Simulated assay, not measured.
Amino acid sequence: MLIIITRTLILYALVVVALRIMGKREIGQLQPFDLVIILMISELAAIPSENVGIPLIAGIIPILVLLLASILLGQIEMKSERARAILNGTPSILIERGKIIESELKRNRYNLSDLLEELRIKNIPNIADVEFAVLETNGQVSVLSKSFKRPLTPEDLNMSPPFEGLPTVLIMDGKLNPAGLQHLSKDIQWLKDELEKQSVNRIEDVLLASLDTSERLFVQKKLNC
């Protein structure tokens, strides 16, 4: 039993490392060849972990070969547009200026029910309001509404709102983030003073505290405090 657990943990660690090396896109935006490699890696890792009669190296070597293949294909894909088209395919326009392109639906074996569902998910129930709908190479549908159906932006009103950056986390789950304080040129005494203004006496009692670019401090206490 201990041998099975050890082999499983080794293969698990190897697969996690392989996915990390392959990049975040592998998880969040799978392309066809990415999906094939991940499925093969998972299968190759499962066999040696289940059967102790198979040498562990027999599972490790194929995984490393697939990892190398993924890296090489990724490099080729980055340098060649033709290679990208061969490996990943090309986007397909499903709706153009409010008109469904039936030939593209048939070529991609994409039915109307799925298309309407994707539009509803993006809060566009009426096809007539769609300028373009594009089936991307990862299977997602990108939708561009017609100009008169898009929400107003400050630019449309000739307004220039102030810059809004990302808030800086200062405390997370009761633990101080010194790097965040340093980034904002603040010290811990400043933070304690600000917490006291919100009736918080200890950093350990804070679930989350962050400061935005407008110098507004958000603080939420833990439930048990």
Rank of each mutant, 00 (worst) to 15 (best):
residue 158 N to D: 12
residue 183 H to S: 11
residue 188 I to V: 07
residue 192 K to L: 02
residue 201 N to C: 03
residue 179 A to D: 07
residue 205 D to R: 05
residue 195 L to S: 11
residue 151 P to I: 11
residue 191 L to F: 01
residue 196 E to A: 10
residue 207 L to V: 01
residue 216 R to Y: 10
residue 186 K to F: 03
residue 216 R to P: 02
residue 179 A to W: 00
residue 215 E to L: 05
residue 207 L to Q: 06
residue 177 N to Q: 09
residue 213 T to V: 10
residue 172 M to I: 02
residue 196 E to D: 05
residue 218 F to E: 14
residue 163 F to A: 15
residue 172 M to A: 12
residue 187 D to N: 13
residue 212 D to F: 12
residue 212 D to S: 14
residue 204 E to G: 10
residue 181 L to G: 08
residue 202 R to L: 11
residue 207 L to D: 07
residue 172 M to E: 11
residue 187 D to M: 03
residue 197 K to I: 07
residue 164 E to S: 11
residue 174 G to D: 05
residue 162 P to G: 15
residue 178 P to K: 11
residue 181 L to A: 08
residue 216 R to T: 12
residue 214 S to A: 14
residue 202 R to E: 13
residue 203 I to K: 15
residue 174 G to V: 01
residue 218 F to H: 15
residue 153 T to C: 06
residue 201 N to W: 01
residue 153 T to H: 08
residue 213 T to C: 12
residue 202 R to Y: 05
residue 210 S to R: 11
residue 202 R to K: 13
residue 149 K to T: 02
residue 182 Q to I: 02
residue 216 R to G: 08
residue 164 E to L: 05
residue 194 E to D: 05
residue 166 L to T: 11
residue 211 L to A: 13
residue 204 E to Q: 12
residue 195 L to T: 10
residue 200 V to M: 08
residue 174 G to Y: 02
residue 165 G to T: 14
residue 204 E to S: 14
residue 165 G to L: 09
residue 160 S to E: 09
residue 177 N to D: 11
residue 196 E to S: 06
residue 153 T to Y: 04
residue 199 S to E: 06
residue 216 R to A: 14
residue 179 A to E: 06
residue 201 N to I: 00
residue 195 L to H: 10
residue 189 Q to E: 06
residue 150 R to M: 06
residue 183 H to T: 09
residue 164 E to P: 02
residue 191 L to E: 01
residue 189 Q to I: 00
residue 154 P to A: 15
residue 165 G to Y: 12
residue 188 I to S: 06
residue 170 L to F: 00
residue 154 P to E: 15
residue 214 S to H: 14
residue 157 L to N: 04
residue 160 S to K: 09
residue 203 I to S: 15
residue 151 P to A: 15
residue 193 D to Q: 07
residue 212 D to V: 09
